[in-house]
Amino acid sequence: MLTLTNVQILYDRAIEAVRDVSLQVGAGQIVALLGSNGAGKTTILKAISNVLYPEDGEVLHGEISLEGADLKRLPADEIVRRGIVHVPEGRRLFPLMTVEENLAMGGFLRDRGELSAGLDRVYGLFPRLKERRRYVAGYLSGGEQQMVAIGRALVAGPKLLMLDEPSLGLAPQIIDLIMETVVALNREQGMAILLVEQNAALALEVAHYGYIVENGRVVLDGPAERIARNEDVKEFYLGCSEGGERKNYREVKHYKRRKRWLS
């Protein structure tokens, strides 16, 4: 479905943010893209959506394609038409517009009937939004705003939904709801999902396949279950020692031994 091949991304034609990244998201798959802050995860999503230009970012080399069609030269709205919809980190709502007006913005490329059906689907997934559809979005809780951001993307009718840090700053109960929704969209609608998360344990729990990005390049990939069992991943991303004992985050963060995959 979605394929990236040897993608290199530069900012200001000087700073290399992503180097020779190759990855795939198959039809009906949930793929987790994991890594620490600054690893290049968000940049990869922006490259797929072709929204690097506000930050003077550019795909210098490599290929990005959806179902065999080149995406690199397409404008962002055409990429949405092709079926890729991006939920950015931090929600990015229109704060002075109502919930329903925000949701309707996701359907700006759809006709009236498709928009109405899309709103009904979102309200079915998130009944709380139906109750608050006339509320101003800027006054919602963080969890409700995340529901609006995901709902707005769903109104566009994506084949592939890209979620950037959907759990960031949310209460555990809301995180559970968001992840249950991700799984339901995949299982019941066959929607492919590319999930960027710093919470590796959470992402690997719902994903079929995973990639770990370090310093702008993929250093490890494989089925999610296998990655979750990898001893280095347990130590550096799940906070567990080889014996399965939970380690202090500070100890993991400052651990001196180099990761074996970077050796």
Rank of each mutant, 00 (worst) to 15 (best):
V87C: 12
L160M: 14
R128F: 05
G113C: 05
A149S: 07
E101D: 10
E180H: 11
G190L: 11
D111Q: 02
G138H: 13
T98A: 08
E131C: 08
P172L: 03
M105F: 05
A117P: 07
G169K: 05
G169W: 11
M162P: 09
L177Y: 13
I178P: 08
L177E: 15
R73M: 09
E114A: 01
A171N: 06
R73S: 15
E67A: 15
D70Q: 07
R128D: 01
E89Q: 15
D164T: 08
E101W: 01
P166S: 04
V122H: 05
A76C: 12
I178Y: 14
G169F: 07
G118A: 03
E144A: 10
P95A: 02
D70P: 03
K72P: 03
L96P: 01
K72G: 10
Q189C: 08
D176A: 15
R187H: 09
V183Q: 12
L125K: 05
L163Y: 04
A69F: 06
T181V: 09
Y139T: 15
R134I: 09
L125N: 05
E89N: 13
E180K: 11
G138M: 12
E114R: 02
P88Q: 15
L96W: 02
P88N: 14
E144V: 08
G169E: 06
G124W: 08
L170N: 01
Q145T: 08
G83F: 11
D120L: 14
K72R: 15
K72D: 07
L109G: 00
M162W: 12
L66T: 04
P127G: 10
E101I: 00
E165I: 07
L177W: 00
D77V: 12
E89L: 12
I84V: 15
V99F: 02
Q146N: 13
G157K: 11
G106W: 00
K130G: 02
E165T: 03
R132P: 06
I150P: 11
V85P: 02
F94H: 06
G157M: 04
K130H: 10
G68P: 01
R81H: 09
L96Y: 10
A69N: 11
V148M: 10
N186A: 10
I150M: 14
G138K: 13
L119T: 03
T98W: 03
L160K: 07
V80S: 04
R121P: 08
E67H: 12
L154I: 07
N102Y: 10
G113T: 14
R132S: 07
P127M: 06
D176V: 14
G157A: 09
I79P: 04
E100Q: 11
D111A: 00
G142L: 15
V122C: 01
E100I: 08
Y135P: 05
T181P: 02
K159T: 12
V182G: 11
G113N: 14
L185M: 09
G143R: 11
R121N: 14
G118E: 03
N186F: 13
P75I: 07
G138N: 13
R112S: 13
M105Y: 06
L96F: 10
R134A: 14
V99Y: 03
R92S: 00
G68Q: 00
G143N: 06
P158F: 04
L160G: 09
I174M: 12
L71G: 08
R91Y: 05
K159S: 14
R121Y: 12
T181K: 12
E114F: 00
A171F: 03
I174T: 09
A153N: 05
V155H: 02
I79Y: 05
M162G: 08
G90F: 10
E114L: 01
L140N: 14
M179G: 02
A69P: 07
R112L: 12
